[in-house]
Amino acid sequence: MTKKDNQKDEAMQQLMKDPRFKLLTAVIKKNQNQSDTLIQILHQAQNLFGYLPMPVIKYIAEALSLPPSQVYGVVTFYNFFSLKQKGEHTCLVCTGTACYVKGAEKILAAIHEKYGIKPDETTQDNKFGLQIARCLGACGLAPVAVVDNEVVSKVRVEDFMPILEKKIGGKP
């Protein structure tokens, strides 16, 4: 066994000690290790861990007897799944048609100016991550953003930035 393999096994060992690992095994068991439930299991895993760490993906592939590349292919196909840890605070800006027409890009530009990050990026201190959504289905209230699970609707840039700063706590 090479040195690299050893390291990887350590990551797996680490995972098995994690209390959330038990919940993940329960989810897989509930789905009877059926390969067609892969996406449903990935959803649950992401709920548990906040994102999809590599050892988790490996464990799921093993448990469902699926080829590694196929599982990785599924994870990267869907927007919802993230291989990277998200920031401590998150801001999700909707860029659906209604929000776009009503100026969602102004908000993104303001965030970029202030925090220097673009969608799918996190500030260097990992404190604040920015994401975009295709459509949150709240078009009547466009433009819409979600800051740490709280929905802010009919966002105007000048009103929005103070809200964001308050949440994140000052400058990055």
Binding site: D36, L38, L42, H43, G73, F77, N79, F80, R134
Partner: peptide
């Protein structure tokens, strides 16, 4: 219930089938 994972193309019937079967849509 099968929960999608963010892919517009899965609204297409055959892609939707692939996704329900747990594959790339």
């Amino acid at each position: 219930i099968r929960i999608g994972a963010g892919a517009f193309v899965c609204g297409e019937q055959t892609a939707l089938i692939a996704s329900i079967e747990g594959r790339r849509g």
